[in-house]
Nucleic acid binder design. Structure first.
Lengths: 250, 250
DNA sequence: CCAAAAGTGTTCATAATACACCCATGC
DNA sequence: GCATGGGTGTATTATGAACACTTTTGG
């Protein structure tokens, strides 16, 4: 909360009598595209099955109305994330704001969309207040669009509620573009103080949706992170099949 | 405007009786950071001197309330841009949404910020409805922050209204980061069908705030645009001092 | 010994950077 | 002819991608 300092008595009187209802106001929601990493190294998104109208029964990204005056939009997103997943203090960045009239049939709703990257393990998929069903879906995004699937279900992007197809598409595109020059990938590590280069590579591969060459990946990792002191060695793996891997810590 | 198709009669009845006033609603504005190129190849921003409270007399970026239900946020931004500058159909992209409580002392205002790149010449700096004063300012953004200056005036970023310091900083940072892999620079050309490589270089230099090597710039331009067919030759300059330059067209 | 995973080194193509130098024009 | 800006070429280094090969473990 800023502390605005009145610049004159005239201004104070003006502001105290300001009629806030002059312009019609939209509802504002904070919606979140929550990504995590499946056990097979596949990217997953958390979706909620809508229990009420509109789009009842359809899958949607979690979100909710901003408590206007009580919290910032960022805080609303963090609160929603906590409610849906139990997770706090993870990667949560604003993505884009969607404000087409008619995107919600009830009334004008402007949605500020966020992207969250949550390590599997911290994430407890739980039903929200409304006892909605929440599920993780694997995603495959190619030229034909996005397909969502897991053990029980499979559907295409056009079955999503609202304009959530556009939001999820933008979220995937954004993290794909960002990962090569930002440190986003580290946000999906199970343990940021004990990870191997191969574990990190799996995250890059899931996000970029392509196989990477391990020797070259290692070279870039050592050059961009270890040599610059952003990451340091923290021991060795003790068990496992092949040669023990060095562990790193961020 | 989407056309929502009711999935059942039950849903139609629910939606028609939906109480839109359940959640308190914020005011939403579309604000625009309008950049143009000064005659000396310097980057400029359009600012408005506020005629009313709050921050009366301070300089601010243009913007205004979204006509909820009648236009999208994007349309509101385009409308504002037209009103302030007379310009249509130019580069106008959403930047970020600012929603901290208290950023406007009157009431909760959520501002969706946009970045516009307008060629000098098309731009007619004009007073808005409120007969506010509108002026172009040169900007210098270094480690000490932004300084705004022109023939008559000079002030630092902390003198701006609202949180417009943060918005303008983010806008500058964003176009600086984008220019190397997006085609944004072309948006500032006076004539997109008759421009020289040097003219384009001036735009890059203004945005990046650094001098570029002309031979290397030409090489990259020919490789990335001409060779790929995105840009083609369109004649030669006829007048001027040195060797006539080739003209290109996008 | 052999499979599996980690780690090292080499080669080749491309791109970024820094320049030296030549070309066509106006005055 | 010479200053001015346009344009070409070259050498150096950095980066990215492909891949052969070695090392250390478990079984």
């Amino acid at each position: 909360m800023n502390d605005y300092i009145y610049e004159s008595e005239e201004e104070m009187n003006f502001l105290k009598s300001y009629d806030a209802s002059k312009y019609e106001r939209p509802s504002v929601t904070a919606d979140i595209v929550i990504f995590t990493l499946g056990d097979a190294g596949n990217l997953q998104v958390l979706l909620i099955k809508r229990g009420g109208f509109p789009y009842k029964g359809r899958w949607a990204i979690p979100g909710g109305f901003v408590n206007v005056g009580k919290e910032s939009v960022d805080e609303a997103a963090a609160r929603e994330l906590k409610e849906e997943t139990g997770v706090e203090n993870v990667y949560l960045k604003q993505l884009y704001t969607f404000g087409e009239p008619g995107r919600d049939p009830r009334t004008t709703v402007i949605s500020v969309a966020y992207t969250a990257l949550v390590p599997k393990g911290e994430l407890k998929v739980q039903a929200g207040d409304d006892a909605q069903e929440a599920r993780l879906f694997n995603i495959r995004y190619d030229v034909n669009g996005i397909i969502f699937y897991n053990d029980e279900l499979s559907f295409t992007e056009d079955k999503l509620a609202f304009d959530h197809r556009d939001i999820i598409r933008m979220a995937i595109t954004r993290i794909r573009n960002r990962i090569d020059y930002e440190d986003d990938a580290f946000s999906l590590l199970k343990n940021k103080h004990r990870f191997t280069i191969s574990e990190l590579k799996v995250i890059y591969e899931a996000i970029k949706n392509e196989k990477l060459d391990l020797p070259n990946f290692r070279k870039a990792f050592l050059r961009d992170y270890v040599a610059k002191g952003k990451v340091h060695e923290s021991g060795e793996t003790s068990i496992g099949k092949g040669k023990p891997a060095k562990l790193y810590s961020i």
